[in-house]
Amino acid sequence: NTKMVRFKKGDSVGLRLAGGNDVGIFVAGIQEGTSAEQEGLQEGDQILKVNTQDFRGLVREDAVLYLLEIPKGEMVTILAQSRADVYRDILACGR
C-alpha cells in the first residue's frame, strides 16, 4: 500500500510532520490547496523517502529542515505508505 506522489514545490511543501526516530515520519496535517493535497497525501501517511533522502530513522527536525531546503519550483517526489493505525498510536503516546 505504498504510493508515490510527485509535484513542483510551491512556497512550501504543505505538510505538517509528526513522529521521528524509531517510529518514522508521518503526515500530521496537509495545507489545503497544496500540490501535496491534490496528489493524494493524507494525514497518517508515513513518509518513507523524499527525492533521494530516506526518511526512515530521521528525527522530525531533520525531516522538516530537508523539506524546507528544497528550493521553490523544484520537483518533489515522495514515497509514502498509509499507516493510519500506527499514526493513531503515535498520537496517543504524544509523540
Rank of each mutant, 00 (worst) to 15 (best):
R16S: 14
V64Y: 15
V27G: 02
L68Y: 09
N21D: 14
Y66D: 00
R60Y: 15
D45V: 01
Q46F: 01
L17M: 07
G44T: 01
Q42T: 09
T52P: 02
L68T: 15
D45A: 01
A28Y: 06
V50K: 03
L17E: 01
Q38G: 13
G73L: 05
A36S: 07
D22L: 01
A92Y: 13
K3W: 01
T34D: 10
Q31K: 09
D54L: 05
S35F: 11
G24P: 10
M75W: 15
D22I: 10
L79R: 08
V64T: 10
D45K: 05
A84S: 13
V59L: 13
I30T: 09
F7C: 00
Q46I: 12
I70V: 04
E37C: 14
I30L: 09
N21Y: 11
G44A: 01
F55N: 00
L68M: 14
L67F: 08
L17Q: 06
L17F: 07
T52S: 14
V64D: 14
D85H: 13
T2Q: 10
A92G: 14
E74A: 12
A28S: 10
G24T: 05
S35K: 12
D45E: 00
G57I: 03
E74I: 03
R83P: 08
D85S: 11
F7G: 00
V59P: 15
L67I: 00
L68K: 15
Q81Y: 08
F26V: 03
R88A: 11
S12H: 13
E61W: 00
I47G: 04
T34I: 09
E74D: 11
L68E: 15
G44K: 01
M75D: 12
G44S: 01
Q81N: 06
K8L: 13
C93S: 14
V59I: 12
V59A: 15
R95W: 10
D45Q: 04
I25N: 07
E32K: 15
L67K: 02
F26K: 07
V13F: 09
I90F: 10
A80M: 01
K49V: 08
R95P: 15
G73S: 05
V59G: 15
Y87Q: 12
S82W: 09
E69L: 04
V86R: 12
R6P: 00
D85A: 11
E74P: 01
S12W: 03
A63Q: 05
D62K: 12
D89E: 13
Y66Q: 08
G19C: 00
G14D: 09
D11H: 08
E39F: 11
V27H: 08
D11Q: 09
G33P: 03
V27M: 09
P71D: 06
A63W: 04
K9I: 03
Q46N: 05
Y87N: 12
L79P: 04
G44W: 03
D54H: 07
R95Q: 14
R56P: 04
E32F: 05
G10P: 03
I78T: 01
Y87A: 10
E61Y: 03
G10E: 09
R88T: 11
D89F: 02
D22V: 03
V59F: 10
D62W: 00
A18L: 08
G10I: 06
I78P: 00
L91P: 12
D54I: 01
D11S: 07
A28G: 07
V76S: 01
D62R: 12
G33H: 07
G20R: 03
I30V: 14
L91A: 12
G24M: 03
T34M: 10
G20A: 06
S82G: 08
G94D: 14
L65K: 15
R56G: 08
E39L: 13
I30E: 03
T52V: 04
Q31V: 13
R56K: 08
F7S: 02
L68C: 14
G20D: 13
L15P: 00
P71Q: 00
Q38D: 12
D54S: 09
G44E: 08
Q53A: 03
A28W: 04
L91D: 10
T77Y: 00
S82V: 01
Q38C: 11
A80K: 01
G20P: 01
G24A: 05
G20F: 06
S35Y: 07
V76F: 03
G73Y: 06
V64H: 09
V64N: 12
A63L: 01
M75A: 04
V27P: 00
L17K: 00
R95N: 15
L67D: 02
I70W: 06
L17T: 00
S12Q: 10
G94L: 02
K8Y: 12
Q38Y: 12
M4K: 10
G19I: 05
I70D: 00
G44F: 02
E43T: 12
R83V: 03
G40N: 09
M4V: 15
S12E: 13
Q53E: 08
L15F: 15
D11A: 06
Q53S: 06
D54M: 04
A28L: 00
N21T: 14
I25H: 01
A28C: 09
K8M: 13
A28K: 07
V50E: 00
Q31D: 15
K49I: 03
D11N: 10
F7P: 00
K9A: 01
E74G: 03
Q38A: 13
G14E: 08
V13C: 12
G40L: 05
T52Q: 13
R60K: 14
K49D: 06
D22R: 10
Q42H: 06
G29Y: 07
Y87C: 10
V5H: 04
G24W: 01
E39N: 13
L91N: 10
E43C: 09
N21F: 10
L58G: 05
R56V: 08
D62F: 04
A84Q: 15
L79D: 00
E39H: 14
R16D: 13
V59N: 15
Q81T: 09
Q46R: 09
Q46K: 07
R16W: 08
V23N: 11
L58K: 07
G20C: 06
T34H: 15
K49S: 12
V23S: 10
V13A: 07
G44I: 05
L15M: 11
S12T: 14
Q53K: 14
R60E: 12
Y87E: 11
R60D: 00
V50M: 06
G20I: 02
K72D: 04
G14P: 11
E61D: 12
G44D: 05
R88Q: 12
V13W: 10
E69W: 03
F26G: 01
I47W: 00
S82H: 11
R60L: 15
R60G: 04
L48V: 04
V76L: 06
L65G: 14
A18I: 15
D62T: 09
A92Q: 12
C93H: 13
L68G: 14
D89S: 13
I90P: 12
L17N: 08
A84Y: 14
D22F: 03
D11V: 01
T52I: 05
L68A: 15
T34Y: 07
R83C: 08
G24N: 00
K72P: 11
Q81S: 07
E61S: 08
M4L: 14
R60H: 13
N51D: 04
K8D: 04
K9D: 03
V5E: 01
L79T: 14
T77S: 09
T77L: 03
L48W: 07
V76W: 02
R56A: 09
I25Q: 06
G57H: 12
V86L: 10
I70R: 01
K72V: 05
L65C: 13
R83T: 08
I70T: 06
I30S: 01
G73V: 04
A63S: 00
V27W: 06
G10V: 06
G33Y: 06
L48Y: 11
L41A: 00
L48M: 10
A92P: 11
K3D: 06
Q46V: 07
E37G: 10
A36W: 14
R6M: 10
A28T: 12
V5W: 00
L79N: 04
K72G: 04
Q46S: 07
Q46H: 07
G24V: 04
I90E: 11
L79Q: 13
L65W: 07
A84N: 14
I70L: 07
A36M: 08
E74F: 01
I47E: 03
I30D: 05
N51T: 04
L58N: 01
L58P: 02
R6S: 11
G57V: 06
R88K: 14
